[in-house]
Amino acid sequence: MSLNKVCLKCLGTVTKEIKVLNGIVSKRNHFVYTADSSSPVKGETTKMNMFQSINNALDIALKSDDSALIFGEDIGFGGVFRCTIGLKEKYGKERVFNTPLCEQGIAGFAIGAAAMGSTAIAEIQFADYIFPAFDQIVNEAAKYRYRSGGMFDCGKLTIRAPCGAVGHGALYHSQSPEAYFAHTPGLKVVVPRGPIKAKGLLLSCIRDPDPCLVFEPKVLYRAAVEEVPVGDYQLPIGKADVLIEGNDITLIGWGTQVHVLKEVAQMAKEKFQVNCEVIDLVSILPWDTDTVIKSVKKTKRCIISHEAPLTGGFGAEIAATIQEECFLHLEAPIQRVTGFDTPFPHVFEPFYLPDKWRCLSAIQKIISY
């Protein structure tokens, strides 16, 4: 039996995920996707969804850098989500190739390749399976430069991983592990909200001097299209985007949750006459404290929302920083709307996710405090 036939983990689940992302059961999505209305980059654009924009970014990286390598489980034929489709045929199996089912090995090989001067772009098939590679990433990749006093590094390392809820991924295909890595100096962690951001952030990560993790919300791969610049461009890591300006409440999220919060902001305006400011954090490490603090000092109220569990979620770090920097400006306790402290459920996923109704309830609570 060929490698491609045996490599797909949990084949039934993967097949269902592809059907979800193709829109067959899209009605189960817990958000309304709103595309970026204008590109921050000038030049020719074309319509792309997020998996296409990622594929385009990888194509540009391979074309512009002869040392670039792309590898992971099943990526030779395009990967589960087709983000690498056509690249092996275009650049050859020496530069785009499958790996064994061993996440620790993928990360270890990527670190070695980057340390020797190659631009290593590794894919972990699902973010849920990044944990076998955790030691390699946090104990080796993150510390490589520091432990040598800057004499050597593995900064040409980027690891991509599909993350987050998708409709029925259950406990092994739905997790959001960004907070685990945010505790590790030496890494950079980004989470794009759509095609334009995905392409620009991925190219920035590939060319960044530090090891980078790109967590791609898998439910966004085919959620909608945007007018994406066709050329080579990069977007800043560590700079949040203020998507909607408001004076009453600051809403903070990243990835899929940004689209939930944009819808909630509209609902709050209609139901409560409350003007919310919506911020996409864009990157978890580093994160844009200045933009967040400036916003909260203006609105005096803040709600943070993410799919990961409450305890130890990155929302706690944001809340702690806001409390330290904005204490005398706050008119209500900071609210967190998150997943629950349980394994990610299957049939109860709609109750687990921080959907628009839970976020709207938090708005009602914070304005009536």
Rank of each mutant, 00 (worst) to 15 (best):
E94P: 01
E94R: 14
E94G: 08
E94M: 14
R95Q: 06
R95E: 00
R95V: 03
V96W: 02
V96S: 00
F97L: 00
F97G: 02
F97N: 03
F97V: 06
N98G: 07
N98Q: 09
N98E: 10
N98D: 11
T99Q: 05
T99A: 07
T99V: 05
T99C: 07
P100K: 09
P100T: 04
P100I: 06
L101I: 15
L101M: 15
L101K: 08
C102H: 14
C102P: 08
E103W: 00
E103A: 10
E103K: 05
E103G: 07
E103S: 04
E103D: 11
E103P: 07
Q104H: 15
Q104L: 14
Q104F: 14
Q104C: 12
Q104V: 15
G105D: 14
G105L: 07
G105K: 04
G105R: 02
G105F: 12
G105Y: 12
I106R: 03
I106E: 04
I106F: 04
I106N: 04
I106G: 02
I106Y: 04
A107L: 01
A107H: 06
A107F: 01
G108C: 13
G108I: 01
F109H: 10
F109G: 12
A110F: 00
A110E: 07
I111D: 02
I111P: 01
I111C: 03
I111R: 04
I111W: 01
G112E: 07
G112H: 05
G112C: 13
G112S: 13
A113D: 07
A113Q: 12
A113S: 13
A114V: 06
A114I: 07
A114C: 15
A114G: 10
A114F: 01
A114E: 05
A115L: 14
A115E: 12
A115C: 12
A115R: 13
A115G: 15
A115P: 09
M116N: 11
G117D: 15
G117C: 12
G117A: 13
S118Y: 14
S118D: 10
S118V: 10
T119A: 10
T119Y: 02
T119P: 01
A120K: 00
A120M: 03
A120S: 14
A120E: 00
I121H: 06
I121T: 04
I121E: 00
I121A: 10
I121Y: 03
I121S: 07
A122T: 05
A122C: 12
A122D: 09
E123L: 09
E123Y: 05
I124N: 07
I124L: 11
I124Y: 09
I124S: 03
Q125V: 13
Q125G: 03
Q125W: 07
F126S: 08
F126Y: 14
A127K: 01
A127T: 02
A127Y: 05
A127R: 05
A127H: 04
D128K: 07
D128I: 00
Y129E: 03
Y129R: 14
Y129G: 11
I130G: 15
I130E: 11
I130H: 00
F131H: 12
F131V: 10
F131W: 10
F131G: 03
F131K: 03
F131Y: 15
F131S: 09
P132F: 01
P132A: 13
A133Q: 06
A133F: 03
A133Y: 06
